[in-house]
Design a protein around this nucleic acid. Structure first.
Length: 374
RNA sequence: GGAAGAAUAGCGAAGUGGCCAAACGCAGCUGACUGUAAAUCAGUUCCUUCGGGUUCGGUGGUUCAAAUCCGCCUUCUUCCA
């Protein structure tokens, strides 16, 4: 593993929040950071230029989905994901472990791996830990994930224990199969809500010595306090000097909670998905742009936001585009939500460096006035 | 001047004696969305003190029962002069 490491530059004196720089083969990015999700090698409706303008560093893509379309060989022939999608920043691929959860009715798990009946035409698609790595090597992302089982919540202790053991075996198999030196392979901590399993999984993965660790099995329908406990039950058992990635978490309060406990990386479809559905994160809380009250509102979405959308367009116009189902509206709203979270991270990093993260978190949440959801 | 046809909720459009407060689509409104089967999905749109009450151009009938059958009126469309 070359060119990949986390340089921790400061730890907030009041909590576990850390500020640092993640070095990758496609550039360095500051942490804690938010990573937009571009499952099919595109963050829906947004161009790479727009992502950069929003301040995006790492973006995600998905192994399961790209192996189906266009197929990893196409991406490899294109010269890898970076060239294929024209993004020269760092890219992370998820392994397909989340699809074990989200496509639960369409798959079967065995010790060997996961057999999907793919969601497009029902054809059989087999993912073993080795196969996931093989695809991820062809896709060529900078950071790649081990194949894991993202277990449904709630699960019995019995089920979770067996699943964790298997996910650990899969992690080992994936690590043994991984050959590319320019990719950082992360292990994923599972264990659900069971503190001892989280600890066990984190410690066993640490023994395998991965360049980074993910916290998985979160944001799958569990209550917020359960999620927060899962984080607290995990981070203490991860090596201090390696990046920690909380998978699939994108609500404002959960991100801030994760940072408090020493998480460095977050990703989520939430900002882009809800943007396409007309819901926006703003410094004053949630805005549903379809609301009639914005019909004649010619002010920006968020007067504290510096994004392309807020600098140039009004709520009345955004509402109009949304009502007419115009693509440009979804794009502008996606830009805003992505920028909102990335900007929040910029402010969070600043606060950590100044040892005032807890105060920042309190103030931010107060102003954001999160009522439900994000 | 004559003939035929049509009028249904915000719009379009089913329904042609009881199972109709009335399908369906659109539009509107409300939710949901967290490692993207999601440009998606769910609920809802006459009034209501939730018992019920008023609706299907208007009006008067037939019937135990009418959006549905009959008379008249109004408006619209097409055709013939």
């Amino acid at each position: 593993m070359k060119d990949f490491y986390l340089e921790i530059l400061h730890v907030d004196k009041s909590c576990g929040a850390r500020y640092g720089i993640l070095h990758t083969s496609h550039g360095n990015v500051e942490v804690p950071m938010f990573m937009p999700v571009g499952t099919l090698a595109t963050v829906k409706t947004m161009s790479p230029e727009e992502l950069k303008e929003c301040g995006a560093g790492v973006i995600l893509a998905n192994t399961y989905h790209l192996s189906l379309r266009p197929g990893e060989d196409v991406v490899a022939a294109a010269g890898g994901l970076h060239k294929f999608m024209n993004y020269d920043g760092p890219i992370l691929t998820d392994s397909g472990g989340f699809q074990v959860f989200s496509l639960a009715e369409k798959r079967k798990i065995t010790e060997e791996g996961v057999t999907f009946k793919n969601h497009l035409n029902g054809a059989k698609l087999f993912f073993s830990p080795e196969r996931a790595i093989e695809i991820e090597e062809k896709l060529g992302a900078d950071i790649i994930m081990s194949l894991d089982e993202c277990v449904h919540y709630p699960a019995t202790y019995e089920y979770m224990k067996n699943s964790v053991e298997r996910t650990l075996r899969w992690a080992k198999r994936g690590k043994d199969a991984h050959k590319r030196e320019d990719q950082a392979l992360f292990g994923i901590v599972q264990g659900g809500e069971f503190a001892d399993l989280r600890k066990y999984c984190a410690e066993e993965l640490t023994k395998m010595d991965f360049p980074g660790y993910s916290i998985g099995g979160t944001s799958i329908g569990e209550p917020k306090d359960v999620m927060f406990k899962m984080i607290r039950d995990t981070t203490p058992y991860l090596p201090f000097d390696k990046p920690r990635y909380l998978m699939g978490v994108g609500s404002v309060d959960a991100i801030l909670e994760g940072i408090t406990d020493g998480v460095d990386m977050f990703d989520c479809v939430l900002p882009t998905r809800i943007a396409r559905h007309g819901a926006l994160m703003t410094s004053h809380g949630r805005v549903n742009i379809r609301d009639k009250k914005y019909e004649y509102d010619f002010t920006p979405l968020d007067d504290n936001c510096d994004c392309y959308c807020c600098k140039n367009y009004t709520k009345a116009y955004l509402r109009h585009l949304y009502k007419c189902d115009e693509t440009f509206g979804k794009r502008l709203l996606s830009i805003h939500n992505i920028r909102f979270l990335i900007h929040m991270m910029e402010e969070a990093r600043k606060a950590i460096k100044e040892d005032r993260f807890l105060q920042f978190k309190e103030d931010f949440l107060k102003q954001f006035a999160s009522e439900k959801g994000f």
